[in-house]
Design a protein around this nucleic acid. Structure first.
Lengths: 188, 188
DNA sequence: TTCGATTTTGAACGGCGTTCAAATATTGAA
DNA sequence: TTCAATATTTGAACGCCGTTCAAAATCGAA
């Protein structure tokens, strides 16, 4: 009964972030996190119900930062739409490669995905995409474009992209976005 | 010193497959597997070095089955290239949705990816893709196409594809493949 | 049959997520 | 100020995990 819960919760999340960034997603455990945050495991469970709650909190933060990073990589309204989307795609890739542990936590590791729920944090990303792509592509097409680029990035971050020559991922993203945009323009 | 190691190894892998298919990727543990296979954990470690070895063996098998499934979904030389690739893409999606636990093991769960190595099992899949796509697209373009479709499937299997209307994934795959093929034809 | 080599075993180590009764700290009324 | 009542924290405990290893069991050859 020391600190307000809001504050302690934020502190714990910050500590969790440091743990993940510094030692990888697998270093995040209840005991280690409690030790780092200076409280007991029990307290941790009072504030978060499950450890997945911590991960969700961390992921929300990560997704927000990612969306901000993408937004600031957007060359702006003056640039052609394809260039803008390509810039977003490359920034998406760069973020994943720069923060592989966070990325892993976000998309691969320890996701107990209650099978109904899509992470609501995606909305920031998707609305940015919508803003840049304009009103014309359908939601489905927009999501398809995101998912296609996401596939390249996910495989690149997981180091499962074979035959990766210098800068190959960037060119792949450009190809997919250019072709995708053209395809959307022509087919709806 | 009872059974030949080859045989016991195969038996263990079969049991591991049953475990994963029946109870999900998380049910695969050394103790449970040993119990199911009727040996001790120690024996398991004599044959596989680490549990990841079991996973690798399982994944090789999964990848082989997947490649076979795709091959048998190919409408054949007579069909237009785009149709053939679309059929492969849809079969890829169907396989993932039909075997989510195997898919999870293959691409998400418990991959201790030694950061150099790309899973060699991909080669069967990629050479099939090459055979269908013809000699013209570069390796990079071919891999980009696979990765883009993979992104859609991975998100669909993980249930992280928002706003998924009936059959949306299939249409997304069609869109990406058609646009991608056109893009490759035009741009190299 | 004996003996060296191989294989199997199961207990043990440290760590995991999670729970919970007991201890502690805080509050508000008397 | 005192003292229940309440809220919070604690750390031991449960059953699981991957992995190791000395001892036991089993084998093939002599």
């Amino acid at each position: 009964m020391r600190k307000p819960h809001k504050e302690l919760k934020a502190e714990i999340l910050a500590e969790a972030g440091r743990l993940v960034d510094g030692e990888g997603a697998r270093a995040l455990s209840a005991r280690r996190l409690a030790a780092a945050a200076g409280c007991s495991v029990g307290t941790l469970y009072n504030l978060f119900e499950h450890l997945d709650g911590v991960v969700r909190g961390l992921n929300r933060e990560t997704m927000l930062r990612l969306a901000e990073t993408l937004a600031s990589a957007d060359p702006g309204d003056a640039a052609p739409r394809t260039d803008r989307l390509e810039a977003l795609g490359r920034a998406y890739l760069a973020y994943g490669l720069a923060h592989p542990a966070r990325w892993e936590l976000l998309f691969r590791y320890r996701l107990e995905t209650p099978p109904e729920a899509v992470p609501g944090e995606l909305s920031a990303l998707l609305s940015l995409l919508r803003r840049v792509a304009g009103p014309e592509p359908s939601d489905e097409a927009l999501i398809a474009l995101w998912a296609a680029v996401h596939g390249i990035v996910e495989l690149a971050v997981a180091r499962r992209l074979p035959n990766a020559a210098e800068g190959a991922e960037g060119r792949m993203i450009a190809l997919v976005i250019e072709a995708g945009i053209r395809g959307i323009a022509e087919a709806g």
